[in-house]
């Protein structure tokens, strides 16, 4: 099957029931996307399909054909980090890092849809991205600070 990932068309050998996360990780070597709970609850596997965040662990790769898929690998790199990546680094938005790609993709979708979210809006939007390390406060701060940075407050 063909998948459009981070602007590139990639060929993957995948059968009908392969989940998107498995195909990304084990067929396309895009291991930045993680799988944790496997049932769509924790958000570690969050990727964007046509700009909307979905759980790639309960989305079949076949369902993602024809959509623009964005993963952490497309967010920004060492040379040019996304403001979200910058703020997660400076404000303690990650510790062990396993939920971080999912948190960042969820936050990316949030800021695309609502560039200046309130704290409650961030909490509500990010509620489906579990983190066991940070207790969330520094993630929320990171997202808020990235939004401010985009506005030029920082």
């Amino acid at each position: 099957m063909q998948l459009n990932v981070n602007g590139r068309t990639l060929e993957a050998e995948a059968t009908g029931l392969a989940t998107l996360v498995d195909v990304l990780r084990y067929e396309l070597d895009l291991t930045g996307t993680k799988e944790a709970c496997g049932v769509g609850v924790c958000g570690a596997c969050t990727v964007l399909l046509d700009g909307r965040m979905v759980a790639s662990c309960i989305t079949l790769a076949a369902q993602a054909q024809g959509a623009q898929i964005q993963t952490i690998e497309g967010l920004g790199d060492r040379e040019l980090l996304d403001p979200l990546q910058e703020s997660f680094i400076t404000d303690g938005g990650f510790q062990c890092g396993i939920c971080t790609p999912g948190q960042l993709m969820a936050a990316k979708a949030l800021l695309e849809h609502n560039p200046q979210p309130t704290e409650d809006e961030i909490k509500h939007w990010m509620m489906g991205n579990l983190c066991r390390c940070t207790g969330y406060y520094q993630i929320i701060e990171s997202v808020a600070n990235a939004a401010n940075a985009a506005r030029g407050d920082r």
Partner: peptide, 14 residues
Amino acid sequence: GVDKTTGRAEYAAD
């Protein structure tokens, strides 16, 4: 920080 926010950090399953 950079490894973990870009998805490049290697974990066992990777």
